[in-house]
Design a protein around this nucleic acid. Structure first.
Length: 517
RNA sequence: GGCCCGUUCGUCUAGGGGUUAGGACAUCAGAUUUUCAUUCUGGUAACAGGGGUUCGAUUCCCCUACGGGCUACCA
């Protein structure tokens, strides 16, 4: 790996919505490429026509866009000079490499039907062992190693289905260096004769990803740990194709695990524990199942990405809140964890909260304006949609929410006057003279010129003492008159936000509604 | 079953032959706040077990246990 330009890829299958584990794989590949001034591309691995799910390719593209993980070339993103980037469109390219391997004696034609193989598997299972199409057994099956050459030609000419299998050597040790785990060795006898080309003429993942990575000049293949067991077969394919000296460096990422219990994170866990497992909402066209996404749940993409980056990686410092650019600068494969990470929905929320805190009020105000207008049916010229009002509301609400979209429900009292009033507070705190006090307060406030939190507070205290009341005695009542409830944002900050007219209106209206003797 | 990968607080992790084993989330307690939230302070809490190697091992090696992945004409 010297002066060669770094090129990484994300190569998902369009078999459904992109799992957050997949997004993380894409993210790490992206960060690594960007860090080294390289290219990151998106390739769609749709070699299995049976598992194709309509809409999932679009879903993948939209997810990456939302996350800000933008490939500089590939399906949905244009650019690049290695098109097409969809394997189904590259179908004609693969066969020659499979046949080349047959020519060189490293692969063979196999005519065994799925039924025959299925039967062998069953038999092996009954004998409590696993069937493996390998050196030990291949000489007993129907393939070009056992059949007469004429027979092979005749069968092919007759249109009989066949696959091309890799001829894995016996008694060899296959060693390679994983960027995360270091040197890993496999005994070739434990590797099976993987199918390279299927009977429908499509390549399997094993052949396709190698041909494409080679042709697309990929330098680093970052993928999930589930691929580790087939890595020796991949090394062999590179070797027999004569590409071993330019093959990409592999990095196998640890998996994302369930928050509780054992096993890898699945959609079911999200449903069960109430958190999304996908970046975006997804309605499955086949099963009609609905899955919720981080975007619709209200996460900021930068918080989502930040959270994902920290699941299995850390910068080695104590800084935790990162922008994408900061992640790019800090990223390194050496700091990737070796063990799987249990997903923690609580910490995910915390990341969003932190990004929310760091976001300027004006930006949040602009983000929530439309939904506030809709929620409360405000006219577009309503003062409560003004930049000034919304910014103040946001700053008041910011410490009380983790998501932008919680603001209007958590702070709904800032936008609309209450219709009910906390009886407990009233019956506990209301006493002689309160009515007079609030009437006078309303009166005084209505003529307060500079209507700030500070001035309103001062006035409140003055009027209270004039009525022989301690501020503490009527503060809670004041809050209930204004918003109907006991808790909430800073009282006088809210008074300033509401403004003179609305504040007075609310006091007056509350005094009428509360109807005390 | 076989093969491969892994194992530091409940969780995400830092660290690394000699440390009071650090941080964050969660949790608990106190302070601040007229309330709730925020904020601040503090607390509980971890090197899976057994053998080596070593003056010394949580750190290196081996074994065991446990966890995970793979074992398809799926990726």
């Amino acid at each position: 790996m010297s002066e060669k330009k770094i090129r990484t890829r994300f190569a998902p299958s369009p078999t459904g919505p992109l799992h957050i584990g997949g997004v993380r794989t894409a993210l790490y590949s992206y960060l690594f490429a960007k860090k080294h001034g390289g290219d990151f591309l998106l390739r769609i691995e749709d070699t299995d026509q049976n598992r194709f799910v309509p809409g999932s390719e679009e879903y993948i593209i939209e997810s990456l866009k939302w996350c800000g993980i933008e490939p500089c070339e590939g399906v949905g993103f244009g650019g690049g000079s290695f098109a097409p980037y969809r394997q189904s469109e590259r179908k004609p390219m693969y066969r020659q490499y499979a046949e080349q391997l047959v020519q060189s004696g490293h692969a063979y034609f196999a005519f065994d039907t799925s039924e025959e193989l299925e039967a062998l598997r069953k038999k092996a299972e009954e004998a409590k062992s696993a069937f493996s199409y390998n050196a030990e057994i291949r000489m007993a099956l129907s393939n070009s190693l056992t059949l007469l050459e004429d027979d092979v030609v005749r069968r092919k000419a007759a249109g009989e289905h066949y696959v091309i299998r890799l001829k894995v050597p016996q008694d060899e040790t296959i060693t390679f260096t994983d960027l995360i785990r270091g040197e890993i060795s496999f005994q070739s006898n434990t590797v099976d004769d993987k199918v390279l080309l299927k009977s429908d003429g499509m390549p399997t993942y094993h052949l396709a990803h190698i041909v494409d990575d080679y042709l697309m000049q990929i330098t680093h293949a970052i993928r999930g740990e589930e691929w580790l067991p087939s890595a020796p077969a991949h090394i062999l394919i590179y070797r027999y194709l004569g590409w071993e000296n330019v093959m990409p460096h592999y990095a196998h990422l640890p998996l994302l695990l369930k928050p509780d219990g054992n096993g890898k994170l699945s959609k079911r866990d999200g449903d069960r524990l109430g958190f999304p497992v996908f970046p975006l909402d997804w309605n499955d066209p086949v099963t009609a199942e609905k899955s919720s996404g981080y975007r619709e749940r209200g996460y900021y993409p930068e918080a989502f990405v930040n959270m994902l980056a920290f699941l299995g990686w850390n910068p080695g410092t104590e800084k935790e809140i990162f922008s994408m650019d900061e992640l790019i600068a800090a990223f390194s494969i050496e700091q990737i964890q070796h063990a799987g990470a249990k997903f923690d929905p609580e910490k995910a929320k915390w990341f969003n909260e932190q990004h929310l805190r760091n976001k300027p009020d004006i930006e949040i105000a602009n983000n929530i304006r439309a939904s506030v207008a809709k929620e409360f049916s405000f006219d577009e010229n309503d003062i409560r949609l003004s930049e000034n009002f919304l910014c103040k509301a946001v700053s008041l609400l910011k410490p009380r929410v983790q998501f932008e979209n919680e603001m209007q429900s958590v702070g709904n009292y800032l936008f609309v006057a209450p219709s009910t009033f906390d009886e407990q507070v009233i019956s506990k705190k209301w006493k002689e003279g309160c009515k007079e006090f609030f009437s006078e307060l309303q009166n005084e406030l209505s003529s307060l010129d500079d209507f700030t939190a500070e001035n309103a507070k001062q006035l409140f205290e003055t009027v209270a003492s004039k009525n022989n009341l301690k501020p503490g005695e009527v503060l809670q009542l004041f809050r209930v008159l204004l918003i109907g409830q006991a808790g909430g944002v800073d009282l006088f900050g809210m008074v300033e936000l509401l403004g003179r007219d609305e504040t007075c209106r609310r006091i007056e209206s509350a005094l009428k509604q509360i109807d005390l003797e």
